[in-house]
Amino acid sequence: MEHNTMNLNLKVWRQKNNNTKGEFKLYRVENISAEMSFLEMFDVLNEQLVVTGEEPVAFDHDCREGICGMCSMYINGKPHGPWQANTTCQLHMRAFKDGDTIVVEPWRANAFPVVKDLMVDRSAFDRIIQAGGYISVNTGNAVDGNALPINKKDADDSFAAAMCIGCGACVAACKNSSAMLFMSAKVSHLALLPQGDPERNSRVLNMVAQMDKEGFGACTNTGACEATCPKEISLSNIARLNQEYLSASLVADK
C-alpha cells in the first residue's frame, strides 16, 4: 500500500447559528494521508483549531460507515463529494491530490435551515414520515411472517427503495430543493408491499401535502437527485409516487 500524504486548502462555510449570517473561511491542513476518510481529515482540522483556540467546525456525523445518513457536506459542488454512490464519511482522501482546494458547504435548502457551520436541520424529513410513511400496525397484531407470500421481485424492489438513509443529499442536489426522491422512496417501499395497501391512498396524499408545507420544491425530473444519492435510489420511484398520487386523487372522496 502506498502511503502518500497531501497538503490541502479548505474553504469551509462557517455560520454560528441560524440567526447569523455565515461566510467562507480558508484553512490549510497538512500531511493528510490518502488513507483517511474525508471526515477524519476534518478531525485533523478540528484538532488543529482546538489547539489554536478557534472553535472547531461543526458537522453532522455518526456511524461513519455510510448507513446512518447523518453526515452531509456539499463538497466541491456535489453532495457527499466526488465519488458515486457514496456518503461523505466513506469518501476517502484518495479522491483528492496534493495542493487541491476543497470547497465545503452545508446542504442548502430553505426547508433545511443551517443549525451551525455545516450542520442543517433535517427534521422536515421526520415530519414527512409522520404524515404517512408507515404501516399502521400496533405491536402484537401481526400474523405469521410467512402467512403472506410476497413476490420476490416486489420484495426486492421494495427493499431497494427502503435503502434510503434519509441523508437529504437529494434535496441538496435538486435545483428546486425538492424532497421527492426521499418521499417517493418511502411511498414505493410501502406501496410495493401488500401490507402497505390499505393506507396507500391517504399515505401518498398526506405525505405530498406535508412535503409542500415544509417548503420543498416540486420535482422537474432532472435526475440530479438520483445521480448523487449514496444508495442509488432510482428516479423511477418518483414516477411511481406520481402514479400513486394520480390514482389516489382520482378516487378521493371530496
Binding site: F24, N76, G77, S178, A218, G223, A227, T228
Partner: peptide, 26 residues
C-alpha cells in the same frame, strides 16, 4: 413553478452541481 422552485433555496451554492443532470433539463 420556476419562480416558486427558485424561492426554495434563498442562499445558493458557491459551486453549482452540474454533473448530475443535463443542462437542458435544468
Amino acid at each position: 413553478l420556476s419562480l416558486e422552485n427558485q424561492q426554495k433555496r434563498s442562499v445558493g451554492y458557491a459551486v453549482a452541481y452540474k454533473d448530475g443532470s443535463k443542462w437542458y433539463s435544468r
